[in-house]
Amino acid sequence: MMLTLKKRTGGLILALWLFAVGPAAGATAQDDFVLVVNSENDLTTINRKDAELIFLKKQRSWPDGKNISVVINENPRIYDSFSHTVLRRSSQQFLVFRKQMLFRGQGMPPLTLKTDQDVVAFVGEHIGSISYVSPDAVTLAVKVVSILQ
């Protein structure tokens, strides 16, 4: 029993540490990524908090009821920036969050793609999808959504 408690306490301390040191480690320029949705999506702006809920898979459908398909862009140039800006946590913390979600069976983790191009292609093909890419990778297949702080 004590052992279990210690282990749990250890896990919590680790998470808090990651949460505390994350933002300082991933501090980057705010405009090196943009949020993108399918071009047919009516969305033009989004609150940061709404965006955070969507990426943490706590909100899983659009206002019209369609499923939200979240895509994680692992492009290292913008991944940390996105994580800090939108999610208010380090990329490492976000990773742990996703791992925990998967481990605890709380839900399938979002699709992860390696490059901006793969992301743009995927979002351009899937109406309910959302992701983030470098500003210069935006095409007509996708629509940039402004983040309201």
Partner: peptide, 15 residues
């Protein structure tokens, strides 16, 4: 961990 996402997700539910 995500390489076995389905299995681990399943295990999470089982657990």
């Amino acid at each position: 961990i995500f390489a076995f996402r389905n299995e681990i997700h399943q295990l999470g539910k089982l657990q």
